[in-house]
Simulated scan of single mutants.
Amino acid sequence: MLLGPAAPDSSADGHVDDAVQGVRHDTFTVDFHLADSPGTVFGAFADTPVRRRWFKLPGRQVSYDHDFTVNGGETASSVFTVAGAAPERLAYSSRYLDIVSGSRIVYTYTARVDDLPRWVSLVTVELRPEADGTRLRWTEQAAFLTPSASPDDDLPHLRGATRLRLNGLAAALRPT
């Protein structure tokens, strides 16, 4: 049996309810070179104290928990303040779906701002050995559920935040 396209939900007067925003889907990939071995880079994801050095939400940290196992995950929350604006409550919650030691991590996460789910993502992190370190490939498939005031900036913001986080990863791997 073939199904045709779904009909829009209509109210009694025949008008489509446009109060609910559509979900926008975007995908991006970031390739990043690290001078360390894949095992060392993988360890920076798995080892909670090392991960805390590079994975942080902006603002004042309120809570953090990390369980690096399949079906485990990570939760973090913070309060972000900017002069002249109301503080934002940020929350992150993830679940690890696939972990292959030294080579691959697949997980989902939800990002919330002031208790609204802004986006959910599926992330695949692949680690490949290179002669002088590791090639990390980060592929993220995002579903933007609640657009910001500037929806065209949502994907560039997410991609930029990912690059900043990976710069933090590289810094966390340097000897202290």
Rank of each mutant, 00 (worst) to 15 (best):
L90T: 07
S101I: 10
A44T: 04
A83E: 13
F45R: 02
L57K: 04
K56L: 05
V70H: 09
A35P: 03
W54G: 04
D47A: 07
T48N: 10
P87V: 09
R95Q: 13
V100D: 12
E126P: 00
R24H: 06
Y107K: 07
A91G: 05
G84W: 01
L97V: 13
G43P: 00
G102E: 10
A76K: 05
F68G: 06
T81N: 09
G59W: 01
R89P: 00
D115S: 13
D31L: 14
R95I: 05
L122E: 11
V79E: 10
E126C: 12
E74R: 01
T69Y: 01
R51W: 02
V50K: 05
G102R: 00
L90W: 00
R51M: 04
S63G: 06
F45C: 00
G73R: 06
A46K: 06
F28P: 04
R95L: 07
V123P: 02
D31V: 13
R60Y: 02
H66W: 07
V82Y: 04
D67G: 08
V41D: 00
V50G: 00
R118V: 14
R118M: 10
A46R: 11
E126T: 15
G43Q: 11
Y64S: 12
G59N: 07
V120A: 11
T110W: 03
L34E: 03
T69C: 03
I99G: 03
P49E: 11
E74M: 12
L57H: 02
V41T: 00
Y109P: 01
A83D: 13
E74K: 08
G39S: 12
V120D: 12
R128Y: 01
Q21A: 15
L34I: 08
R53A: 09
T124P: 01
Y107A: 08
V41G: 02
G73E: 05
V82K: 11
L116C: 12
R52I: 01
G43M: 05
L34C: 10
T48K: 09
E126L: 14
W54Y: 03
F42C: 05
S94V: 05
V30H: 04
P117R: 15
G22C: 10
H33C: 06
A111N: 13
A111V: 12
L90P: 03
A83F: 06
P38M: 03
V123I: 06
V113S: 08
G102C: 02
D36S: 09
G43A: 12
S77Y: 01
R24E: 08
T124F: 01
V82I: 07
D36I: 01
T75G: 06
A46V: 03
T108D: 11
H25S: 14
G73S: 05
R52F: 06
D31W: 06
S103T: 14
I99W: 02
S93I: 07
V123E: 09
V62G: 03
Q61L: 10
D47I: 10
A46C: 03
A91L: 06
V30Y: 00
V79M: 03
P38I: 05
A111P: 00
G73V: 05
N71A: 14
F68L: 11
